[in-house]
């Protein structure tokens, strides 16, 4: 464990808690893409299959449980909670995210480190996580006005991915055997997707204006 990875995990945890806090306190999911949340729940479900079989550390198991419970409860809130579901804008959240699932699965079948069920599901979760933010970014472009919590949520997610890239660079230089091209490339693609959001986020923060993404 290195500081970049710990900071990345904490930032990722913060992003999920910010979202849960927003939904739970103001009982609203305005501006949040249910599709992205469903993709994240699928990412965790397929990545943490080894939750009960491979024990790595208490930290690892605990964090996996937190991410699983929080991602599925966010989906539950938006779909079933009688008040929150009313604020879900399904007419705007129209990204056909199922079209992302199949290509990621096929790619995982072709490009993976080992052709085993667990490894293919893990690789699938990596590719899916790389594109899971797309419905949310599309929704932000559409709704234009981004409320603070949603902006912070996407910002924290981007920060978590950026910290993970620093973690991989650190591990590459400190652990001779640590080479995971698949992880690195899909992680890089994912981080690049946030790049333009970051640009507009900092612009609005610097000029102290409301965050707006160009149509």
């Amino acid at each position: 464990m290195n500081i970049f990875r710990l900071a990345g995990d904490m930032t990722h945890l913060a992003s999920v808690l910010v979202l849960l806090l927003k939904i739970h306190t103001i009982k609203s999911c305005a501006g949040i893409s249910l599709k992205t949340q469903e993709l994240y729940a699928l990412v965790f479900a397929t990545r943490y299959l080894d939750l009960f079989t491979d024990y790595i550390s208490l930290y690892n198991t605990l964090m996996k449980l937190i991410f699983l419970v929080s991602s599925f409860s966010i989906v539950w809130y938006i779909r079933h909670h009688k008040i929150v579901r009313r604020s879900y804008d399904k007419d705007q959240d129209t990204f056909r995210h199922y079209f992302l699932v199949l290509p990621c699965f096929l790619l995982a079948l072709v490009i993976n480190e080992k052709f085993t069920v667990k490894e293919i599901m893990w690789t699938f979760s990596l590719y899916l996580e790389a594109v899971a933010i797309l419905p949310q970014l599309v929704l932000l472009q559409r709704t234009r006005n981004i409320d603070n919590l949603t902006g912070q949520y996407v910002f924290l997610l981007g920060a978590y991915r950026s910290l993970y890239i620093l973690n991989w660079i650190y591990r590459y230089f400190t652990e001779p055997h640590y080479v995971h091209w698949i992880t690195w490339i899909s992680g890089l693609v994912q981080t690049l997707l946030y790049a333009d959001f970051f640009y507009y986020y900092f612009q609005s923060w610097k000029n102290n204006v409301k965050l707006e993404l160009p149509a």
């Binding site: 995990d9 790595i56 690892n60 964090m63 480190e113 080992k114 973690n167 055997h177 995971h180 992880t183």
Partner: peptide
């Protein structure tokens, strides 16, 4: 090396 199959990152 068996390090590759156990993914220790979240």
């Amino acid at each position: 090396n068996d390090e590759s199959d156990d993914h220790d990152e979240l």
